[in-house]
Design a protein around this nucleic acid. Structure first.
Length: 503
RNA sequence: GGCGUGUUCGUCUAGUGGCCCAGGACGUCGCCCUCUCACGGCGAAGAUCACGGGUUCGAAUCCCGUACACGCUACCA
C-alpha cells in the first residue's frame, strides 16, 4: 500500500440528477485524491436496468464538471481502467462469479420472488430475522439440496440467481477511517445475491470487483453502506484480494433528521443551479457540511483550491448534518461581493439581452448592454443582491422604465410640495455641465439650502421617480449611471403621474 | 424485531482530562454608520455538552448502562 498512487471514485447510479448528498460524496473523494496527488474517477453503476434513466450519466458528469470536479477517468473521459460503465463489464463479473461458484463460495438459487417474499412474511410474523432459508444450498456446501437437482434445473433453463455463501459464525472486522474499528457477526448477514436472474450483478458484487480491478486505494461513500461492509469484506477474502481503505461519510439530513430526500425541498444540484447559486457557493457550503479545518480555525469561505490544500478525512465528523439554506444564501452574497465584474457580466449580459427581447425599454440598448454600463451597475449593486440574476431583476430600473411606484414609499415621501420642488430642480439638472454624482450632490445641496430644507426632501422623491422603489444604491451614483436624459424623463413622468395620497 | 452508527446553541460546528458555568459562523434581535436598502462595525438573546451511573483532586472530553434518532435488513443502489 505504501507509495501507491491514491485513486478514489464517485460511483453513482444513473437514476436521475445529481443529489446534493452525492455532490458532497464526490467532492470529498475529489478533495482527498487531489490532496494526496492522486486521481478521481467516475464510474457509473447501471446494473439495475429497470431504474435506468436516459441522459442521467451525462448530466451527472456535466454537473460534476460544473462544480469544478473534473474526473481523471470516466465513461466520458476514458482511461486505462475502463469500461467505466458497469453494464459494459458483464463478462468480467461473470468470470468471477464462475470462480466463486467453483470454489464453493457461491451457489445457484431458484427460489422465485414470490416464494422469498412469502418466506419473509412468515419469518417476520414469527418475530424472526428475515433471512434466506438456504433451500438451494448444495449438500456438499453444508446444505440439503442434491447437486443433481440443481443441475436438472440448470439444464431446464429455470431462471436463477447466484448467492454468496456467508460463513456461519465468523466475525468480520475492519477499521473505518472516520469511525474507527467496527465489528460484525456473519450470523446476522444474509446469503447475498451476487448475480441477478437477468444476468446483471448486484451492487455488492460489481462494486467489489470494480473497486479492486480499477485499483482504488480509498472508498469514500455514504454511511448507508456501512451495514453491507461484511459482505464486501467477505467477497474480498473469497477472491483473495486486499481490500482498500474505507471511509463512511455521515448522511445529509432533512430538517426532521431523516435521510435527505425529495419531498422536503430541493435536493438536486440542478435545482440550486437554476435558482442562481454559483458553483463556488455550493461547493464551499457542501464541503462544510460534515468537515471543518479544526484547530480553532474560523474560516468560512474556501475556494476549491484551498479545500484541496486543507482537506483531510480525519476531520470529517461522524454525525449527520441537516441541509438548510440559510448559510448557503449568505455564502452566495460573500462571493458576489468579491467576484470580478467581468465574471458577473459574462453571466448577466445574456440574461439582460433575453429580457430585452421580451420587454421594451426607452434606454439605449447598446449602452445598457455594454460592459461599461454593466460594470457601473454591478459596482453599485453588488452588496445589495443575493444572486447574480438579481442584477437584472432586482435592479431592473437600470434597464427598464419604472412601471409603477412603490405605494408605501410614495405615501411616506411625497408631499403636496414635491411636484413643484421637482419642477424647480429639473432645470438645474438639465443645465449642469457634468452629470456626475459629485456634481449632482453639490447642486442638490445648493438648491435646497437657501430654502432652509434638507436634502432628504428631494432625495427620496428623486429615487422614487427614477427607480420606482424606496431602496437601492446611493442616489447620486444611481442618477449618474442612469444618465441625464433618462433621469429628466423619469422625473417628468413622476411629476405627472404621482399624486399625493389621500389621508 | 435484528444489526450498525450517531447524539455540543434553532442550524453548521470548535473542543481529544484542568485555559470551557463551552468558542466561532449562519439565522434572530438591538445599537451605530446613513438619502433608502444593503454592506460594515458593535452588542444581545441562545447549549444544565441526550439522560443516568461510574473512573478521577478535576469530564463535553475516559468507561458502563439507558433513551432517542437515523441507516441497513431487496434479484435498488
Amino acid at each position: 500500500m505504501v507509495g501507491k498512487r491514491v485513486r478514489t471514485r464517485f460511483a453513482p447510479s444513473p437514476t436521475g440528477y445529481l443529489h446534493v448528498g452525492g455532490l458532497r460524496t464526490a467532492l470529498y473523494n475529489y478533495l482527498f485524491a487531489k490532496r494526496m496527488g492522486g486521481d478521481f474517477i467516475v464510474r457509473i453503476e447501471d446494473t439495475d436496468q429497470s431504474r435506468k434513466v436516459a441522459d442521467a450519466q451525462e448530466n451527472l458528469i456535466k454537473t460534476l464538471e460544473w462544480a469544478g470536479l473534473m474526473p481523471d477517468e470516466s465513461p466520458l473521459h476514458g482511461g486505462d481502467f475502463g469500461p467505466y460503465l458497469q453494464s459494459e463489464r458483464l463478462d468480467i463479473y461473470k468470470k468471477y462469479c464462475e470462480q466463486l461458484l467453483e470454489e464453493g463460495h457461491a451457489y445457484h438459487c431458484f427460489a422465485t420472488s414470490e416464494e422469498l417474499e412469502e418466506n419473509r412474511q412468515l419469518q417476520m410474523k414469527q418475530g424472526l430475522q428475515p433471512k434466506y432459508n438456504r433451500k438451494w444450498l448444495p449438500e456438499d456446501m453444508g446444505g440439503s439440496m442434491p447437486r443433481s437437482e440443481i443441475q436438472k434445473k440448470l439444464d431446464e433453463g429455470v431462471p436463477s440467481v447466484v448467492r454468496m455463501k456467508v460463513p456461519d459464525y465468523v466475525s468480520v472486522w475492519f477499521e473505518d477511517i472516520i469511525r474507527g474499528p467496527i465489528e460484525f457477526d456473519s450470523a446476522t448477514i444474509d446469503d447475498q445475491v451476487l448475480m441477478k436472474s437477468d444476468g446483471f450483478p448486484t451492487y455488492h458484487f460489481a462494486s467489489v470487483i470494480d473497486d479492486h480491478l480499477m485499483e482504488f486505494t480509498h472508498i469514500i461513500r455514504g454511511e448507508e453502506w456501512l451495514p453491507s461492509m461484511p459482505k464486501h469484506l467477505l467477497l474480498y477474502e473469497f477472491l483473495g484480494w486486499e481490500p482498500p481503505k474505507y471511509a463512511h461519510l455521515p448522511l445529509l439530513l432533512n430538517p426532521d433528521r431523516s435521510k435527505l430526500s425529495k419531498r422536503q425541498g430541493d435536493v438536486s444540484v440542478e435545482d440550486y443551479i437554476r435558482k442562481g447559486y454559483s458553483s463556488e457557493t455550493i461547493v464551499n457550503f457542501v464541503a462544510l457540511l460534515g468537515w471543518n479545518q479544526g484547530e480553532g480555525c474560523e474560516q468560512e469561505v474556501y475556494s476549491l483550491q484551498e479545500l484541496i490544500e486543507r482537506f483531510s478525512l480525519e476531520r470529517v465528523g461522524k454525525a449527520g448534518s441537516i441541509f438548510t439554506i440559510d448559510k448557503l444564501n449568505w455564502l452566495e452574497k460573500q462571493y458576489i461581493k468579491t467576484r470580478p465584474a467581468e465574471d458577473i457580466i459574462r453571466v448577466i449580459q445574456p440574461l439582460l439581452i433575453s429580457e430585452l427581447e421580451k420587454k421594451e425599454t426607452l434606454l439605449d440598448r447598446v449602452t445598457i448592454t455594454g460592459e461599461r454600463y454593466l460594470e457601473d451597475v454591478i459596482e453599485l449593486m453588488r452588496e445589495r443582491v443575493g444572486f447574480e440574476h438579481e442584477f437584472v431583476t432586482f435592479s431592473s430600473y437600470f434597464f427598464f422604465e419604472p412601471e409603477e411606484y412603490e405605494e408605501e414609499a410614495v405615501k411616506k415621501r411625497w408631499t403636496p410640495d414635491t411636484s413643484s420642488l421637482l419642477g424647480e430642480f429639473l432645470p438645474v439638472l438639465e443645465s449642469m455641465p457634468d452629470f456626475t454624482a459629485e456634481a449632482i450632490e453639490v447642486a442638490l445641496k445648493e438648491f435646497v439650502a437657501p430654502k432652509g430644507l434638507k436634502t432628504a426632501i428631494l432625495i427620496h422623491p428623486l429615487r422614487i421617480c427614477s427607480s420606482g422603489v424606496s431602496f437601492g444604491p446611493s442616489l447620486y451614483h444611481m442618477l449618474e449611471v442612469l444618465g441625464r436624459e433618462a433621469v429628466v424623463r423619469r422625473i417628468q413622468k413622476g411629476m405627472a403621474v404621482i399624486t399625493v395620497p389621500q389621508q
